[in-house]
Nucleic acid binder design. Structure first.
Lengths: 244, 244
DNA sequence: GTGTAGACTTTGAGTGATCAAAATCAAGCG
DNA sequence: CGCTTGATTTTGATCACTCAAAGTCTACAC
């Protein structure tokens, strides 16, 4: 049985891998800061996650991650390439998706059944995801009607780790004047989520893209209330949408 | 912040103290075995819980408990009397009741909202009681309508640690031909709980006491279905009732 | 009063997870 | 090539929790 700590490393590694492929694949417009941060050197070779990224995500010092990655490699959950980085094995990926399934189902449950605000459920779920048995998880899943997405629009893996697919893009990539539906708010920061909620940037809401000015780094959308919302590129990049 | 382990020790100590006062106060009929087990020596002086009891309850070796009790004494949660036993301090009692509140609310929630069987919720709650935040706990409490008793009939402490009172006795103490209502099934063993459920021994059920034979160690009750249920003293002692 | 059983404590060690700080490495630059 | 820089690894230590096994107490029994 993996410990809760192991589950956490694996989950974080999965999410880091996702961030990796998303940034490297055609998704464009990396914000200028991230380049500076890694000293201009090539960021993580060939799909490997740098240990320092993981250390930061886990809130531990780098040495701890090195040790942990060696252990997880031996356990067959991670492929660890010394001095280069690491990647999940198939078994690791399965475990990660399992933990993420628990996390997201719990989030949705807290919002739908217990009425918590979507900005507060992430932290709760961080703890509960390690305490929920299969039995209870399945009850929750059933109780919610086998949902496909959590309150932030993040996909919920099914019991086999399969994720529902969707043709999503970020607001940054939208054409001016297009009509889109918010599918997902990335990033779990409570402040940002409150801001999003207050401006109607909620999964399901329909928006009109009023302006996309990459030079000024500005995107303006009009929500269903008819009010225009100006967003910087960072914020706009976190709002993912589908055609509507 | 107390760790989950500390919470567990404190909770177990509280329950052991309860068992103590219940057995020592007029409740009578100690079953013969318990005497033999402690070698005929006086069981736990003056309201102190023997460390070996605690060790057994926690599933650890006695040495571990000694160490832990010293730490908890220093932390002000426990009064530890070397070579005699230990008892909770007021702070310890508060903490214990807090953990028990979480445990019992979770149990009821799992039964009422998620539809689990009362025989399976104890183990789930053992884990979840350490993972639930105040925020979520209060939502659950509200969602259930501030309940006073858990599915087994055990009282749920309120936020200040106050327990609802009830004039309860065990089936062993009932008069023949009396009419009683089941208020509580003590003991968390799944097998016993299944047996109880299958025979209608559920909080709320009304019973007629048909026979109480202390010599043969036999109690017979008739349930609402009209069927007579014979119980040994051990089992009967676990069924607690109020007048009906 | 001496023995003894059983409860209790001590000691030494291990595990899992972490840190601080020193040592090492690899890549790109001049 | 040799340097610098930042990532990475190593080393030695700590903390919370646990165990096994040896040692100590104490109350009762005779």
């Amino acid at each position: 049985m993996p410990t809760r700590t192991v589950e956490d490393y694996i989950k974080r590694l999965y999410l880091a891998e996702q961030a990796l492929t998303r940034t490297s694949s055609g998704n464009a417009k990396v914000d200028p800061k991230s380049r500076k941060k890694t000293g201009g050197k090539s960021d993580s070779k060939a799909g490997l996650v740098m240990l320092s990224k993981l250390a930061q995500a886990m809130g531990v010092v780098p040495g701890t991650v090195t040790t942990m990655m060696r252990t997880l490699d031996e356990a067959g959950l991670v492929k660890y390439e010394p001095r280069s980085g690491c990647r999940l094995t198939e078994r690791g990926r399965k475990l990660a998706l399992h933990v993420i399934r628990r996390h997201r189902l719990v989030e949705l449950f807290l919002v739908r059944t217990l009425g918590l605000d979507w900005s507060e459920v992430h932290e709760e779920a961080e703890v509960l995801e390690h305490a929920i048995s299969e039995r209870v998880l399945d009850r929750i899943d059933r109780h919610l009607g086998r949902p496909l997405f959590d309150p932030h629009g993040d996909p919920i893996p099914d019991r086999d780790g399969k994720l529902p697919k969707r043709a999503e893009s970020s607001l940054l990539e939208c054409e001016k004047a297009s009509r889109v539906k918010v599918s997902r708010i990335e990033h779990q920061d409570a402040k940002f989520l409150n801001f999003a909620r207050d401006n109607g940037l909620i999964p399901g809401e329909v928006l009109i893209v009023v302006q996309v000015d990459t030079t000024a780094g500005l995107v303006i959308v009009r929500g269903s209330a008819g009010i225009e919302i100006p967003l910087g590129t960072t914020a706009a990049g976190r709002v993912r949408v589908v055609k509507a």
